[in-house]
Write a protein that binds this DNA or RNA. Structure first.
Lengths: 217, 217, 217, 217
DNA sequence: AATGAATGAGTGTTCATTCAT
DNA sequence: GATGAATGAACACTCATTCAT
């Protein structure tokens, strides 16, 4: 009996977290279907089987719900990217160039795979970077974003300045690597292209590498 | 005398058209600053010095104003692209490969230049392709879009299947060529990157050509 | 040639009257379908192929259009009623009671027949007596109404106070005679009853006479 | 203690219902004064001391407010009619004919009395039968109406086919009985007749019975 | 923590009416 | 007389947010 009590009293926190995650998912679907400003609290309330009061109690306001959705997605994508890059590091027999190529392609793969398997999160995250500003760049959010960029910078730093990459302004790199697949993804998510993103996975990877590698070797 | 009559009959229409164009510009600025759904009719009314009634008299409703803005931008961009491509055709001394490269780069240049000099139109046009569907794909709009795509297809058709391009699925081409610069532009327009798009003009062009050209020649 | 000129210059008045009548008919249809306040000037404009300006030029404003429709209908019904009553007067061989009965029934017949053959006018006229007040009881309207009531009063006066009718307060007479058929008509016009009004013509007439005749003949 | 709990749980609902009824009354007054479409939500809001939001929270929209007013009135009238008819049934010493006469007159009395003491409800209910259709004939409304008609049919069924009534098409009965008093009431409510409806109570009853009774007995 | 009634500023849109041409 | 662009007050309705229970 004491166990049961314990369960009942300890789990609540977990239960609450679980509930929040559920709400975020529901909110994402609403945002996907109607856009952020087209989504009303009432829609989220109905779809999540909560009361308006609860929603506000847990999230504060509508903008913060959107921000929470963004953070959740961002974090999940970051996890996948980290995982993909981590697989390369240990392969010590590769040359620096080969590693760099694998790294660039890993970034593309992570994007393609995540977008392909989480299209709604992807659309939201990649279309609403600006939420950061709007939502007041609260510590939480800014932190998540920064750690994400640090991850990328840290990984590629060793390969900079070694004639492995074309001498490209650093600002361009992200766009050159992920631009095409994001662009395609946008059209695909909007239903304008039919072939699944995943099918062009290798093409995007090759094109990305071609776009940034040093031309001469 | 006949000329005067002509004047009298032609001007009114011109005046009306002029006014509409003016309103569209004002609306664009509002949409840019507040987003489409964040823009109220009242904002457009105040900025354009019209009455609500007139706005509705001429455009029907808010969605149709947005659609009209889209069309106007699309058309202007189409004009620039057409112009750029037209400059290549006559240079008869070039090989097919050289021409194809110039063509690909011309597309990039047109994008970079137009986005650079019409950032607001650009942001609007490239972020709201979906308006077409929403606004009921009226003949006018659909027509403009189709003629735009036809232009591109017509220009590049002669170079297809000649080992000039990598054997890429046709759907990918647009994303590979313009994806990076659109991606960068999005960040730049959002203020996340500071260097003007134009400064990377050549980089985008080169990267685009590298991404689609046949690798072996 | 002078005749032609005359034609061209004299007819316009007739033409204008014709046009007005046409517009009134169109307006009636709009009012029938959408109610008076549900009908917009724009509807009347479109259905009548006129310009807004012309409508206002000829009628003044929306209320006056409604009033004009009312007057037109009232007048046409009055004409029919007068006609029906006139047929009885000459039959000199009838007793006063027989004449009174025919008179009462003539009123019912006039109502039934006119409602049956002009359901839209009827609905409008019998449902919008109050227009008189709203529209400012302009001389024109008031005049038409008064002449209508005078007609009835004049016809029945000779039969009053002769033990032909039950001693009923005069205010009641109209309701006792035409109430049932108007009530039925309202339901029928609203589609709640299916049998055409006309089919019950005689029933209404008999019931009316029974309701007002002296009981001990 | 249990009683207290009951109190706590029952009162809120009652309070809400009470409020709704109050609003309906206010709405009726507005509708009476300005007509349904002439009444604005703002009028109802001001007169009821509520907020726009609350009005919509409770009723959904303007049409549904009107429908609710209709239902409320209909139900109250139905209650009175039922009561009047119930008083006759037990008087076992009467012949069928006498009972029928009392029944017909009871219907007239119920109409006269209710219209006389609730002129606003009456005007609204008898002039807006068509609301049923407009408001989507929700189960609630349709139910109320049906039970109302069933009541009448059930009461008079026993007297049908016994030579008590003239052989009148069934559709006509309602109009013959209540038509005159409704017609008079309409004029009276519009201020065209001054004598109160009630004063002609007996006249309407007699006329109704004369209009439907078999002529020969 | 949970609920949902209450709030009211704000929104898109309509429409009778005016008036310059 | 005829036209239709222009006007702006009004309207029905929405929705984020608050708060008493």
């Amino acid at each position: 009996m004491s166990k049961q009590v314990a369960k009942v009293q300890v789990k609540p926190q977990a239960k609450t977290e679980e509930k929040k995650r559920q709400i975020l998912l529901v909110a994402l679907q609403c945002f996907t279907e109607h856009g952020i400003s087209g989504t009303t609290i009432e829609m989220i309330r109905e779809a999540s089987n909560m009361s308006v009061g609860s929603l506000y109690h847990h999230f504060g306001n509508k903008d913060k719900i959107a921000a929470a959705v963004f953070i959740q997605g961002m974090r999940e994508f970051g996890d996948l990217l980290r995982e993909y890059l981590a697989e390369i590091a240990p392969q010590k027999k590769l040359t620096a160039v080969e590693k760099a190529e694998l790294g660039v392609k890993a970034v593309v793969y992570a994007n393609v795979d995540w977008i392909g398997s989480n299209p709604e999160w992807a659309r939201f995250v990649f279309h609403h970077r600006s939420i950061i500003a709007t939502a007041g760049s609260e510590a939480k959010l800014a932190g998540d974003m920064q750690s994400f960029y640090k991850l990328l910078i840290a990984w590629f730093k060793p390969y900079a300045g070694q004639e492995i990459f074309r001498p490209i302004p650093i600002e361009l790199i992200s766009s050159l690597i992920t631009g095409p697949c994001h662009d395609y993804a946008r059209h695909w998510l909007a239903g304008r292209y039919k072939t699944p993103l995943f099918q062009h996975r290798e093409e995007f990877a090759i094109a990305a590498w071609n776009a940034v590698k040093a031309s001469n070797p």
